[in-house]
């Protein structure tokens, strides 16, 4: 257990808070990979997910493709692309982002399409009968009501990407993985542990922030439904996805 003490002392040491290998810089790099990945993946997956959810088309294909994507070992895909691209260190970012996007798509896609599909068909029907266009139905009815599940997907994706961005260091990128990957071969287990702790703390903090966002975006009317006992099933299916992540 002494290693934990060493690790905390390492973290608190002022000289480790400056320079390119300093903690702030590594965290920023880590956040940058995560942000870029989640942005790209969200644009792709949420758009697709809303389309699938709204039209009900291609759902079977989406389920099997995302299932297959989940079976792909991230580390393998990463080094394969890195070797294949072979563009040298400064281009390591491209395979890294591709791999992380592949990782982030399944939860995002699932959150988006299951969110839209969880909206009561009668509500959508009523909206259509009132004269909403399909576009208005999507944005004014389905997306607001699906938002908690969409954010649940984003939350899962962010967590996975934060965790996995660690391995980017293996193909010589920065981020918090650097501490782990650099220290392992020289058996500097204190620094390894520092990396592990920092990634965990970062993940927990981000998760906390996202949970908060998720709470805030549950539409007020839906929150009212959830507190009434007759509607437990809705509550459950929604919370299942979000908290499972």
């Amino acid at each position: 257990m002494n290693l934990f003490g060493d690790a905390f002392r390492w973290i608190l040491e002022p000289s480790h808070w400056t320079g390119p290998n300093g903690i702030p810089n590594r965290i920023l790099e880590h956040l940058a990979y995560t942000g870029l990945t989640v942005l790209i993946a969200t644009l792709i997956a949420v758009a697709l997910g809303l389309y699938i959810g709204h039209t009900g088309r291609f759902r079977g294909i989406a389920v099997s493709v995302t299932g297959a994507m989940r079976a792909l070992p991230t580390l393998g895909l990463l080094v394969y692309l890195a070797v294949l691209f072979g563009l040298g260190i400064q281009f390591a970012l491209i395979p890294t982002i591709i791999v992380l996007v592949v990782l982030a798509i399944p939860p995002l896609l699932a959150g988006a399409y299951s969110g839209v599909q969880s909206v009561d068909g009668r509500t959508v029907d009523a909206a259509r009968s009132m004269g909403m266009t399909e576009w208005q139905i999507l944005w004014k009815v389905e997306v607001p009501l699906a938002l908690p599940l969409i954010l649940g997907g984003i939350r899962s994706a962010v967590l996975q990407v934060v965790a996995t961005a660690t391995v980017a260091a293996y193909i010589s990128l920065g981020g918090l993985g650097r501490y782990i990957i650099d220290a392992l071969p020289v058996r500097d287990y204190t620094t390894v542990l520092v990396g592990a702790l920092l990634v965990t703390i970062l993940a927990l903090v981000l998760d906390g922030i996202l949970i908060l966002c998720q709470r805030l975006t549950v539409p007020a009317g839906v929150r009212a439904i959830r507190s009434s006992p007759g509607q437990r099933s809705t509550t459950k299916s929604a919370s299942t996805v979000s908290t499972a992540a």
Binding site: M1, L3, F4, L159, V162, A163, T164, T166, V167, G177, I180, L184, R187, Y189, V192, L193, G195, A196, L197, V199, T200, A203, L204, D207, T243, A244, A245
Partner: peptide, 28 residues
């Protein structure tokens, strides 16, 4: 129970693997 499981899942797996020897007292 569900909160603990949720938190557990938040810990990156590589982080947990490399922290394990410290926790379990095992060899790396």
């Amino acid at each position: 129970v569900l909160t603990v499981c949720g938190l557990l899942y938040t810990i990156p797996s590589l982080a947990l693997i490399v922290a394990m020897p410290t926790i379990l007292g095992t060899k790396i």
